[in-house]
Amino acid sequence: MTSISERRLEQRPPLEKIMDTVFLWAARISALAIAGVLIWIITLVFIQALPAIGQFGLGFLFKSTWNPVRDEYGILTPIYGTIVSSLIALLISVPIGLGVSIVLSEDYLPTQIQRILVFLVELLAAIPSVVYGLWGVFVLIPFLREITPLKGPSMLPAALILSVMILPTISAIARDALINVDIGVRQAAVGLGATRWETILLVILPAASSGIIGGIMLALGRALGETMAVTMLIGNSNQLNVSLFQPSNTISSLLANQFAEASGLQVSALMYAALVLAIITLVVNMLAQIVVTQLQKI
């Protein structure tokens, strides 16, 4: 028997080395593929949008005509509708979502009931958007007609449906952020004589703020791009109307409604609109990143 110090260190088997290399390259290619797909899509959209960009320039963003007969296009109304419907949805679902996340992250409820509620909230995200749309058409709009001056599909029901659709995103992510706040921080606050509300509002929420904001931005991204339910409810009118009870349009609804019959310059105009939507969403995501990193620094 040789002692352990006399034995040479064994080499790794060649097969293991090859496996390592294969794994490394598989990972690299996968990562590049994601970036590649994104760039490919944006480039193709951009190329197809070029004729419309040349024809209308930036004026495309500030005109509210959409006239395939005369080939005159502008997307002021859809841009306005996209942003307003999303902001109204956030206005409604942020406070509710935060409330839900606080209740579901504290110990107000028995564990069993809490677990069921968490599951139900997450289930909201699993309902297909066409089902939301259908519910909006046959339940929400008739209901709103009873209690508001609303006549039919318009901005209000679209924004309301959006708020329900993004609620699970906000509450699930905010709840995770709240639960992940270090227990020591909570004990410190309680130990200093903070009541439960003071602990939640002054310590736990600020400590979880970067996660919460991240969730809100993700929800906003979803609201900006949501197509099916909104298209069924918003009325798809390109006339600019500030009233929430009047039909409006969003960029994604415009695309969904028009692409089938479009030809020539209209296709190019739709691609231009798609490019604008992609840029809006991209900017929102980048802002979210910046806000989150800033908050984490504090």
């Binding site: 410190a188 200093l192 009541t195 310590v203």
Partner: peptide, 28 residues
């Protein structure tokens, strides 16, 4: 708890400034 304070095993400052860490208890 406002009369009987506590220091924990693992240092657990609030993720706030040093100044705010001190003033938190006083504020509430």
């Amino acid at each position: 708890r406002r009369r009987i304070g506590m220091v924990f095993q693992k240092p657990n400052p609030f993720p706030k400034s040093i100044y705010e860490n001190i003033t938190f208890g006083a504020k509430i």
